[in-house]
Design a protein around this nucleic acid. Structure first.
Lengths: 210, 210, 210, 210
DNA sequence: GATGAATGAGCGTTCATTCAT
DNA sequence: CATGAATGAACGCTCATTCAT
C-alpha cells in the first residue's frame, strides 16, 4: 500500500528482464538468509523484498533450497591467497574485519551461514568454505609436525573473531579495525605457525569481486 | 519463580508429576533447540520427545519462545572462575573441549545457540553468556591498556575452537582433547594477556553434571 | 457468507466430537471424490462441505491420499454372495441398478472411482473390487473351459450397465429398474455361464451395511 | 473453423509450421488427456511433450478446456457402420479389442475419456460418442418393442469390455483378442437383438489410421 | 507473430496456539 | 486441571493464463 506511487521515483528497475529479476532475487535472498537463517526466511519474504512475484523463484532457481545454495556461494575475496606469505594472516584479518560484507547483511558470510547450520547441507558448505579459505592456506605455511592442528587453531580464531564482532557484538571487537588487531594477531600467528608473520598487509587483498 | 516455595504444600504425588513433566519438556527442548535450532524445532517435536501433550508447553511456559528462553539458560560450569588464575585459560579450553555437553546435544551451548542466532533473544543470550563466561574473567586478568580487546580476542578463540570442533568439524580439532591444545593455548594466552598462563589445570573445574 | 446465520437451524451437529467430525469429513470426501474425481477435489472443498477446518483432514487421516483410500473403500453390499446361486446375477443387477448409492453421489462406487483412474492406486482398488464383487463369484458358477473369460465378460456387462446408466445417461438404461433388465440378463447369463440363471431375486440381497 | 480455407493463401512454409505445431500439440494432448485425465494433465506437460512453448496452446486453442474438447474429438473408425448388418456387433468388438488406439494411449477413447468424466463437457462427449457409435446403430437392428433398451444393454457390454480390458485389467479380457470373444458375443447379440448375428467380420471395417 | 517474463489463485501440508469439555 | 479438538495463518510449490517486448 505504501508502494503504490513508488513507480515514479524507482530509477531504473527494468521490468521483464530475466537477468535483472534473477539478480534482485538473489540479492534479497542473500540478505535474508544471512540475517534470519534458512528456516526463518520464506520465499515470500524474499519475493517481497525483491518486489517480484514469488513464483519466479521457482522458475529461476527451482526451489528454495537451490536458491539458498546459490545465494550462499561465497566468492572468496580475490587476492586473499595471493601476495606475500608473511602477510597472509594479516590479509585474513582484514577479510574478517574490514571487508565490506553488506551484501550478506554486514556479517562475514561464514558467520551468517552458521544461522542455518541446523541443515547438514549448510554445514557442509561452511566446512568447505573454512577449509578452502583458511585451514588449507595456513597449513601450507605451518612448520613442524602438528601443522594441521595449528592451522585449524588459527582458523578458529578468525571465525571466532567474526562471531564476536557481529553476532555477539562485544564492545571492543565490534569497533575494532584490522589495524587494531594486527599486532596481536601477528604475534600469535608467528608463535603458532613457527615462522615470522607480518602484522600489516600492503593492499587490501580481499575486495570481493561481486 | 512462582514455584519456588510450592514444595511445602504439595500433596506428595501430583505436584511432583507436574514438576517432572516440566523438567522433561525442558530437557527435550534443550536438546532439540541445540541440535536443530529454534525454527526447525516444533513444539510438537518437543512434546513427542517428552511423551506429553503439546498444549502443556503453553500451560507451563506460555509460548514456544518462552520455553526457548528457559531452555537455553546455561548453567555455566561450576568452578570455571574458581581456582588458580594462571590456569583459567586451561580450564576454559576444557570447558569447550572436554566437558560433557550431552545435555545440549554434545555441543557447547554457545555453539548450539548460534543456530538460533537469527532471533535477537538468542543473540542476547549468547552475548550475556560470552561476557559472563569468558570476556569478563579474562579482562580482569589482562595487564596493560587494551585489556578489553585482548580479553575479547582470547574469548573469540575459545568460541572459534568450539565452532570448528562441532559445527564445522575440521579434522584435527574435532578429534583433539584439551591436553592436545593446552601447550598452544598457554603460549598464546601468555602472550596476549601479558602474564604467564599454565597449560594444565589440576581438576576439571567445571563439572556441572546434569 | 451465506452460512453466517446457519448455526441457528443446524439441528444437532455436535462440536468437538472426534468421531462425528471424522464421519462428516469422510462423508463429504466420498461424495466429492465420487463426483469430481481425486484430482479435481481439493481438501479445502471437502472441509468446506463438512463445515470443518481443513487441517483436521490431516489430523484424522494423515493426507489427502489416505482420506481418499478410506473414502473409497466400498463395503460390498451384504448378501450379494449369499442366497440361491441361480439368482446371483439378478442380485448383481440389483446392486448396480436399484441399490441406493446416494452416499457416492448416486453412482455405483466402481463407476465413480473410474473418475480417479489416472492414479494407479485407484486402478488397483477398482481391480480388486471388480474381482471380489463380480468376477470371482461368477467364475465359480461358470461351467466348461474358458470360465474365467466368460465370468469376466459377464462382469464387464455389469460395469458397462452402471456406466451407461450414470455417466453416459442413455435414456432407457437411466430409467430402467432391475426388473426391466432381469429377463434379458437372465437369458444372457444362462447362455454365458452354461447353467440356468433366474431373472428374479426374492430379496434385495444388496442393502449396503452402512 | 476459421482456418478452413487458409490453405489457399499460405506462403508455403511458415503456415505449414503453424499447422504442424498445432497438430503436434493436439497429438500430445490426446495422449496425455487419455492417459492421465484432464486434471492430472498440465498445459506445460503437453507443451513439453510437443517441444513447443506453452503459451502457444492459448494462442492456438484459447484455453486448456478448448484444447481438451478438440483433442477428445474421436474420429469413429471408418467402416464400422458399413458392411453386412449381421457382422455389425463383430465389428464393434474389433473396434474395442483389436483396433490400434495407440493415438489414445492404447485404450479405446471412450474408456480413456471416462478418466475425465468429472467434467460435464467430457461426459457430454462420451454420451454423444456412445450413442453415435453404438446405441443408434444397434437400435436400428433390434426387432421388437424395447429395442432401445436392448440396444443400450448391448452397448453397455461393449463399453464394459473396454473398461475391464484396459482400466481394470482383468486377466482373461486383457489378453483376449476379438476372435476369442466372437462366439460368445455373437450368441448374446443374437439373443438380445432377436436376429442372427455373425461372430466374424471379413475385414476390420475400422482402421482410421492417423 | 512468437517468445518468455510475469501473475495471482490455489494446491497439500504444517505451524503455533486457543478453547471447550 | 488436563486432554485433545479446533483454528487460521503461513509454508513451499504448481497451476492456467496474460502481457510486454
Amino acid at each position: 500500500m505504501s508502494t503504490i506511487d513508488d513507480q515514479a521515483r524507482e530509477p531504473a528497475v527494468p521490468k521483464r528482464d530475466r537477468e535483472a529479476t534473477r539478480a534482485r532475487l538473489l540479492e534479497a535472498a542473500r540478505l535474508r538468509f544471512a540475517r534470519e537463517g534458512y528456516d526463518a526466511t520464506s520465499v515470500r519474504d524474499i519475493a517481497r523484498d525483491s518486489g517480484v512475484d514469488a513464483t519466479l523463484i521457482f522458475r529461476y532457481f527451482g526451489s528454495k533450497k537451490q536458491l539458498f545454495d546459490e545465494a550462499s556461494a561465497t566468492d572468496l575475496p580475490a587476492g586473499l591467497l595471493e601476495g606475500p606469505q608473511e602477510e597472509l594472516v594479516a590479509r585474513m584479518v582484514r577479510t574478517v574485519v574490514d571487508h565490506d560484507w553488506t551484501k550478506y547483511g554486514g556479517e562475514h558470510p561464514l558467520v551468517a551461514m552458521l544461522r542455518s547450520s541446523a541443515h547438514e547441507d549448510a554445514r557442509r558448505r561452511i566446512r568447505e568454505e573454512v577449509c578452502a579459505t583458511y585451514v588449507n592456506a595456513l597449513r601450507d605455511l605451518a612448520e613442524g609436525e602438528d601443522a594441521e592442528l595449528r592451522a585449524e587453531l588459527l582458523s578458529a580464531w578468525m571465525v571466532g573473531i567474526g562471531i564476536l564482532r557481529s553476532v555477539v557484538g562485544t564492545p571492543a571487537l565490534a569497533e575494532a579495525r584490522a589495524a587494531d588487531l594486527a599486532p596481536h594477531v601477528a604475534a600469535v600467528a608467528t608463535d603458532l605457525l613457527g615462522r615470522p608473520m607480518s602484522g600489516t598487509a600492503d593492499r587490501e587483498g580481499g575486495s570481493s569481486r561481486t
